[in-house]
Design a binder for these strands. Sequence first.
DNA 1: CCCAAGACCTGGCGGC
DNA 2: TGCCGCCAGGTCTTGG
Length: 271
Amino acid sequence: MPELPEVETTRRGIVDHLCGAEIADLVVRVPKLRWPISPALPYELRGEVIRTVERRGKYLLLRCVRGTLLYHLGMSGSLQLVPPGRRAGPHDHVDLVTGAGPVLRLTDPRKFGAVLWVEGDPLKHPLLRDQGPEPLTADFDGAYLLARSRGRSRSVKAFIMDSKVVPGVGNIYANEALFQAGIRPSTPAGWLGAERCDRLAASIKEVLIRAIAAGGTSLRDFVGGDGRPGYFSQQLQVYGRGGEPCNRCRTRLVETRQEQRSTVFCRHCQR
DNA sequence: CCCAAGACCTGGCGGC
DNA sequence: TGCCGCCAGGTCTTGG
């Protein structure tokens, strides 16, 4: 569920409430997420004041005075502001409590998500340090993709889903961006020329921007920080549409498997 | 270094 | 209805 647009939608839904808030408690019901949450963490956090809520790739950064609380939503995670005292369901693993207002609740059935406390510069943390440029900044463009893809034999789809190349692009938006750019997902990344790299970078930006504007893609029960679902699923051109006609040429879309991820493309529009 | 597969988890769905 | 296998938005880790 959570690729960059969903994480950004979540960030926008929680930022106003959290900025300036003092952390009163971290209630950990299930500490065994991607990495175990230390029993000492709630004591370390008490009294910390959240200064900003930022996003890097698919990570959310709650920057406090002495450190940064990092959240990752994994495959099935979501964050919501809920009224204090609301009963916790079986997958409501962690609550961040700030004073009297709503509580930031992490819900994650598959437990691939993460909550980490990082002291010092969070961008130097091993999880963030090797990530490529943010896709929605000027640092990310066709020239960058061209330079990074020289000599690479892996498929362009796996290439753009690699956070070391560019963070935030997951399976949904990789499929969508490649359709928009007219590039077949299995093409070796190193075969792309300057023109196709330009189109690909532009398509990634456009797809992500449109998805953010729609509030993300709600599959299953994803909702943003304000509890509202996203509507980008109505604009999906290929993801989840295997066997259906291409919206551009009406050819039946092909669904295959690449690196164990479902891949959908139009064999007429994408070369 | 590069690449693909494996691993981590739970729930929902289609098929029998 | 019940069970089984397969699939799902991610990404770190492992092994070749």
